[in-house]
Simulated scan of single mutants.
Amino acid sequence: MNLDDPRAQRSRARLRTAILELAAVKDPAAITMSEVAKHADVNRATVYQHFPDVNALVTDAMEDAVEHVAHAAALCPLDAPGDDVPQPLNDLFQGIADNAALYRRMLGPQGSALLAARMRERLTTELVTSFREGRRPAGFDDVPDEVHAAYLAGALIGVITTWITKNASVSAPTMALAFWRMFRR
């Protein structure tokens, strides 16, 4: 299969959308390839041409979310005041709130440890790159870039997970501000 073929790209996009819609309302472990095919309005064989199983499809579909989290966090200006949340961070928390059911299912107790690890890894990579471009908070020169980035990535993923699974009634702007204040200290 040629992944550059527009038909293959359309099929993959439909499959990603279908799995994310299904995963927002149902445990991914209980989703079948047949359900995905029906929801995406494609033949079941098409699903298997692109993905060997539901886990591979979920992982692939969540890659955009992982990328969004990592990119938004790395864009935050480090010189913003503690009470002035950078817009990329506000956008990040609002995007998570808008898709809370999906994130809750993916990062919650029954969720994918692989997804949380992937998010942490991707975020760490983005932050290391950002640090090496001169966008690192002052006062941490004695800490290796990778260690500092991993610490911040773990903190952000932990805050997001706790927020969406235990404190979902807290607004996105309130959580973004809380995280920003903790991050800045």
Score class of each variant (00 low, 15 high):
2 N>W: 02
4 D>W: 08
7 R>P: 04
15 L>Q: 06
15 L>G: 08
22 L>W: 04
22 L>H: 00
22 L>I: 02
27 D>S: 09
30 A>R: 14
31 I>S: 01
32 T>L: 09
34 S>C: 04
37 A>D: 02
40 A>P: 07
44 R>M: 09
45 A>F: 04
45 A>P: 02
49 Q>W: 03
51 F>H: 02
57 L>I: 01
63 E>D: 13
64 D>V: 10
66 V>H: 09
69 V>M: 05
71 H>Q: 01
73 A>R: 14
77 P>L: 12
77 P>N: 08
78 L>S: 00
80 A>M: 13
81 P>M: 05
84 D>F: 07
86 P>G: 13
94 Q>G: 05
95 G>T: 05
97 A>I: 11
97 A>R: 15
98 D>K: 07
98 D>M: 04
101 A>P: 10
104 R>V: 09
104 R>H: 13
108 G>A: 11
109 P>A: 15
110 Q>V: 11
111 G>I: 10
111 G>Y: 14
116 A>R: 15
118 R>N: 10
119 M>E: 15
120 R>A: 05
125 T>S: 12
130 S>P: 08
132 R>F: 08
136 R>K: 09
137 P>E: 05
137 P>I: 13
138 A>Y: 04
138 A>Q: 12
139 G>V: 09
141 D>F: 12
143 V>F: 14
144 P>W: 00
144 P>E: 03
145 D>Q: 04
146 E>A: 15
146 E>K: 05
146 E>P: 02
146 E>W: 02
150 A>P: 08
159 V>N: 01
162 T>V: 11
163 W>K: 03
163 W>Q: 02
164 I>C: 06
165 T>A: 10
171 S>M: 10
173 P>R: 02
178 A>S: 04
179 F>P: 07
182 M>R: 01
183 F>R: 06
